[in-house]
Nucleic acid binder design. Sequence first.
DNA 1: GTTCAATTGTTCATTGACATAACAATTCGG
DNA 2: CCGAATTGTTATGTCAATGAACAATTGAAC
Lengths: 159, 159
Amino acid sequence: MSDTPKDDVSEDTAADRFLQQFTGYRIKRALLVVHEDMTETLVPLGLRVGTFAPLAVVAANPGISQTKLSDVLKIKRSGVVAVVDELERIGAIERKPVAGDRRTNALFMTTAGGRLWQQAEAAIQAHEDRLFTDLTDEDNDQIRDLLSRVILRAERAKE
Amino acid sequence: MSDTPKDDVSEDTAADRFLQQFTGYRIKRALLVVHEDMTETLVPLGLRVGTFAPLAVVAANPGISQTKLSDVLKIKRSGVVAVVDELERIGAIERKPVAGDRRTNALFMTTAGGRLWQQAEAAIQAHEDRLFTDLTDEDNDQIRDLLSRVILRAERAKE
DNA sequence: GTTCAATTGTTCATTGACATAACAATTCGG
DNA sequence: CCGAATTGTTATGTCAATGAACAATTGAAC
């Protein structure tokens, strides 16, 4: 990546600056780099960006159902199946039957899954510290607060 | 969307808050809602989120090559082909041969494309104003500055 | 109680937005 | 001039997510 031809740097950055006048584009680019670094962080643990969040939710909500999980993650039930399959296949969580309702699966972390989650959480924390190290704690609070307000604002507008 | 079953609001928002402790997840959620609103904004004009940025770059850089466009957009040349195909098919831009190099395409906006771009830019500006209306101008400057620093930081770290 | 509607998890086909690899045509460098 | 590099292109795959249909099960009306 260090050998990128930069015969035209000024024009490149000018075009880049032009595009970044749009906040939406800026968010996309930010997500791109964060996603990439997060992938590198999780792969050694056998996780992906798409399995980290589900694992986090199950860790914090033992016995949660798949439908509930789909609500929290804002993805469809059909999408949850694949993710839960994967996490079960690597032995991190397991589906258990629920007493009063034979339709529902209750999701629990295994003990191995608990260890995995500990590692993953620490690794992601380090990843965020590393990625956002230029930012002060104040900056971090700000960016998170501002993003939250964007999310809330937009979701309220959808109703 | 207004009839979402909310029998369990407190737990939902708790789980949500838990997930949003991760800035990466927050960015993803923010992008999700922004992307959705942006789509609704662009579809009436015959554009998509994925064609807006290329159109913007061609508008600001008449005669740009596809390879150059792929650099600016941070996508591969093969991906540019489909996007340019689409923009050419709807009559917004056109490929023109370059004098000294028969390999290269120079991309230009058509006059219809110019009108389209004017509308699209105004529409997206309105979309951002609407979506970020809760935020002060200061907030907006901050969020954009912070995202930029995240992007720069991460891209520098990749080298 | 029975029956009809709703819920849960699942499968399958599809989409969107990319990436990778190979390729022909063309241009460039020594 | 010839081999290396560049440009656009095609074909193929991947990743994340969606939508539609489905069987099993549960809930509600009455």
